[in-house]
Each structure stands twice: as structure tokens, then as C-alpha cells.
Design a protein around this nucleic acid. Structure first.
Lengths: 290, 290
DNA sequence: TGCAATACGTGCGAAAATGCATGCATGAAT
DNA sequence: ATTCATGCATGCATTTTCGCACGTATTGCA
């Protein structure tokens, strides 16, 4: 009986995910298939790879060894896929972009439309998420990220510098204009965030009333009048029902980057999308700064 | 449609072997299966991997790229298999030894018998060939080789130093004893071999009458009385119908080595076989030298 | 104690992969 | 010109693999 490479891949995912069901989900197969492939791999290798316990499959040392080398194989596969993608000169077929939802909705949409009309044969897939997808593993071909730099392994193009400022509903804006010393409710992003020093000095009656882990929810809360938020200029300007309030002067914020893996970067489709996005944002540069 | 690792392996073997049939033979599947897997890989990658020409499948650049990375994957697989074998402490299951036919027949057989009796659960497989099997790819676990050194990547244990001398049938031996100046027919090994200088000086009437590319055939020819041969001491002594003749004094010959890959070397089965062979040959050390 | 969720094994029918037989094309040898 | 060997495509029957439905065991929680 001889060893199937796909069975090694299956062992790898089972070691990574711990249960037949989740490994199967990752592989796109039923969990029974995972169990059967593992059994086949055990027969082929002559080694017990997992202990079948009540709460799941527990990998043996041999399984960890298999997983280690199968991981290397997967890296080779990833590299192959990147190289194939990178030398692809066709302007057709799938192309995957990832970006935060709010950037897509309020910034990137026009560029995507321009691109889609210019290249009707490209099947553009947009993964809208704040998760940093792994471009090394080709979870996406290009990514738009808000960060200080593009990172070590990725190639990056700075699309725009941006400022942040304070925004709130018209209600709140009126109240602040009326009585600058009145108590101010802030809605801040992420659990451990603090108020900017400037705010603490000039508006000592400020307090953090809500902490949100999601920028979309936070924006909605601000629109609903729950309080004042600090957010990028483009976002405050784009959202209905929000106006800038003078609590926090415009401050430099993280830049917007277009990033990609250097192997994939030269592909025709990636180059075309890159240029479409870059041209569009260059024309609207003023949207992002005060 | 998603990519099967086994299809990458299939593309690799097709690139290496050039035809569906030989790739299929290598993989142990029908050639139609190779054709279908290649078609599947092409669909999954969105790339044409081979041009179907009248005289076979011609790989495209993309196929060469696939093959390169699939080769890396195969190396990972080989390394995995070696590591698994190396940490195997069981004295059961398959164990493969490779050695030249004549060494097995006339030297190793007793040691193998001892080993087999001591370890009845080991399934000992002997690959008798002069080809140097690839121990890195686990074509064998241990090899016995006649050479100057074990090579760079393999671990080696010198089993015996040996001499060579001249041998011939009883007929020839009598003729030489009778008239040392009579013409002597030599049978030499390999195409470009020449007679030793010592022979040219002391027996100027010597001439090369036959050149053989196979030591077994050569030994048989000597037994049949076709002429005089130079061969290792152990072999001349072991073959019926051959006696040593004084044309060529015993001369140091290449050593006999037991070699293995360092990853596999510590395995229990390999260690046991190694010790059996080493002990046996140590006891019969005199067989190899004058 | 009872219920829901998670995790796995098993049997069966459906789907996919495989092997085999046949036929065609090409090139080399007779 | 004919024959043979090599190499591949295609259709069909078989084998293998897979997904699904059902059953069991365990854990956590109310």
C-alpha cells in the first residue's frame, strides 16, 4: 500500500484543527472522509498517528512529524501557486482583493467599478474583512491595509496619508457648540484605548462611555447619537448624519497601503487593479486629510 | 475546483519521464489515469501544462515550474519517511538491503540467515543489484558497496579491506605452470579497462581477449575457461572451478562498506542488521585478503 | 436529572476515479 | 509498401472513494 500526498495534507489539517469535523471543513470534505484518509495514511506509514479519545483525535509524535513535513510541502505548494499567479499575463480569471469593509464601501468602490468595466473577463472577488489575510498563502492577491508600514515580507504602495478627527451626530455638535464644558460621552475603538491627551486637557469633562471592537458598529453608534468618536477623516465625511466636532483637531493617522506578495505583484491582473486603485485615490487625495 | 497534491506528483513524474505510460509505471497506475490527473491539474491551476504532440506530452514552462516545486514536496516526503523510519524501534516490518549480487551470494548470505532467524518478524527485502540505489529516497535502508569511501551524504561502516588477484580455470592454471611465456588471454571488467602494469611487464604475451560489463558473466566466462581474470580474492576463492594463478600478486582492492542514510541509521531494524553483518564479516575477515 | 452540543463510528447508496479494451496516428525497421 | 513499436484518445465496466443518515459516548449546563 502506498502513500497518498493528499492523505499527508489531511493529517496536517487534522493536527492543526484537532477534530475531524473542523479539519474536514478546512479541506472541503466530510469529516468521515478525514477519518478514512487518516486511517489510510496510518496503514501506508505503518504508524499510529492519532489516539482516538472521547473528546477528539489526539496526535502522536509520529503525527507531529508528519505534520511538520506536510507543512513544508504546503509551503512549496503556496510558493508554486504564487509563482504561477505572478507569471500570469492574462487579463481574465479570478483576482482576489481584501480590504476593510468601510474602506471598500466608502473609498474603493468607484475604483473597483472602473476596473471591472475596463476588464470584463476578470472575475474580481472582494474579501471585506479587518482580518489580515495571509497573502503568502494566496488568501488574496492584493490587500488594502491601514497600518504604519506594509510589513517585512510584502511589497507595498502607499495610497494615501490620512488624518483623523472627532465626529458626532448633529445633536451632539449643537450641544457642544452651546456649552463647551458640558460632559461628553466618547465611544472608543478597541478595549484598551484611552482618550487622546489633547481631549483630556481641553475637555476634562470627557469620559469613555462605550468601547467597541468593531468600527462599523462604532460608526453606527455615533450616527445614532450615542456619543463622540475619533475616526479617519474620510469616514466621518462619508457617513450620513455625522459632522466634525472641534474637540480633537485633525491628527495624522495610519496611512492607507496597497500590499501584495512580491511573487504575485508582477501579474497582469494585479498590476491593472493596482493602477486603477492608485489612480483613483490619487485623484481624491484631499478626502483623507484636513 | 481545487488542487490535489497527488496531481502535482503526477505532473512531476510526467515531466521526468516524458510519456504517460512511463510516468504511470513509475506511479503504479494506468497511463490513462496519468492523463486524467494532468487534465485535472490543468483545470485546477488554470494553466496548460503539456502540449499534446504526436510523440508525447511536451511540458510547458508552467509544467516545469510545477515540477520544480513538486520536486521540493517530494524531498519533504522523503525526509519525512526517513525520519519516521529512523525513530522506529520495532523489530518487525519491512527492511530493505541492497548489495551487489555476488556479495550476497558468496559473502552476505550467512549473515542474512542469522539475522532472519533472530528476527522472524522482520520482513527482509534484498535488492541485489550493482546500481547504487538512492538511500536518500529510501529505495533501501542499508547498502553494501564496494568503493573507496561511503560518499558525502551517507554514513558508512567499513566491513572489510580486500585484495584482488588473478584467477583462471584449472586448465589455464596448468598451462601457465607448464610454460610461463605462453600467450595469455585476459577477460577484463568494463569497457575501458587495461591490464595492470605488473602483468604487462612480467607476462608480455598477455592480451585482452574479452571485455565484459557484468561481473557475474565475467566470472562465468572464467569458469568456462575463456581466460584469466582479475577479481577480488573472496570471489575467486568462492567460485567453483577457479584457482588462483600467479600472474598478478595480491593487490589492495576497494573496501567493502556498509552504508546508510544518517536519518535511518539509528532505527532498531537497521541497527540489528548492521550488527549481524558486521559480526559475521569480522569473523571471516581472512576471506578477503591474501 | 435531563437536554443540547460536540465528537466519532458505521452502513449504504451515490459519485468519482481507475483500469481495460479498442482504435488512431506517427515513425522506424524490414 | 508493410509491419511493428510507441504513444495517445475514448467509451465502458469496475473499483474506490465519498457524503449522508443514523447511532453512541461524553461533556457542560440548566
Amino acid at each position: 500500500m502506498n502513500l497518498h500526498w493528499d492523505d499527508l495534507k489531511t493529517v496536517l489539517e487534522l493536527v492543526r484543527h484537532g477534530s475531524l469535523a473542523s479539519a474536514g471543513a478546512q479541506l472541503g470534505v466530510n469529516y468521515t472522509t478525514v477519518a478514512r484518509r487518516v486511517a489510510r495514511a496510518e496503514a501506508a506509514l505503518g504508524e499510529v498517528l492519532f489516539e482516538r479519545l472521547a473528546d477528539g483525535y489526539q496526535p502522536t509524535e509520529a503525527a507531529l512529524l508528519v505534520a511538520r513535513h506536510a507543512g513544508e510541502m504546503q509551503q512549496s505548494e503556496d510558493t508554486l501557486l504564487r509563482h504561477l499567479a505572478g507569471r500570469d499575463e492574462r487579463l481574465s480569471g479570478p483576482l482576489t482583493l481584501t480590504a476593510p469593509q468601510l474602506l471598500i464601501a466608502h473609498v474603493l468602490a468607484p475604483a473597483l467599478q472602473t476596473f471591472a468595466e475596463a476588464h470584463p473577463n476578470v472575475d474580481l472577488r472582494v474579501k471585506a474583512t479587518n482580518d489580515l489575510l495571509d497573502l503568502t498563502r494566496r488568501e488574496a492577491d492584493l490587500g488594502v491595509r491601514v497600518s504604519r508600514d506594509p510589513g517585512d515580507t510584502l511589497t507595498g504602495l502607499r495610497l494615501a496619508a490620512q488624518d483623523s478627527a472627532s465626529f458626532a451626530s448633529a445633536d451632539w455638535a449643537a450641544r457642544i457648540a452651546e456649552d463647551p464644558t458640558a460632559p461628553i460621552d466618547w465611544i472608543v475603538y478597541e478595549a484598551h484605548a484611552t482618550l487622546p491627551k489633547h481631549v483630556l486637557q481641553t475637555s476634562p469633562s470627557s469620559r469613555i462611555r462605550y468601547r467597541f471592537d468593531d468600527m462599523i458598529a462604532l460608526a453606527g453608534a455615533a450616527q445614532a447619537g450615542l456619543g463622540v468618536v475619533r475616526m479617519p477623516m474620510f469616514l466621518g465625511r462619508s457617513l450620513d448624519g455625522l459632522v466634525q466636532v472641534p474637540l480633537l483637531p485633525p491628527t495624522p493617522y495610519m496611512d492607507i497601503w496597497l500590499v501584495g506578495h512580491p511573487d504575485v505583484w508582477p501579474s497582469a491582473k494585479v498590476t491593472a487593479l493596482r493602477q486603477a486603485i492608485r489612480a483613483d485615490l490619487k485623484a481624491r487625495r484631499a478626502l483623507f486629510v484636513a
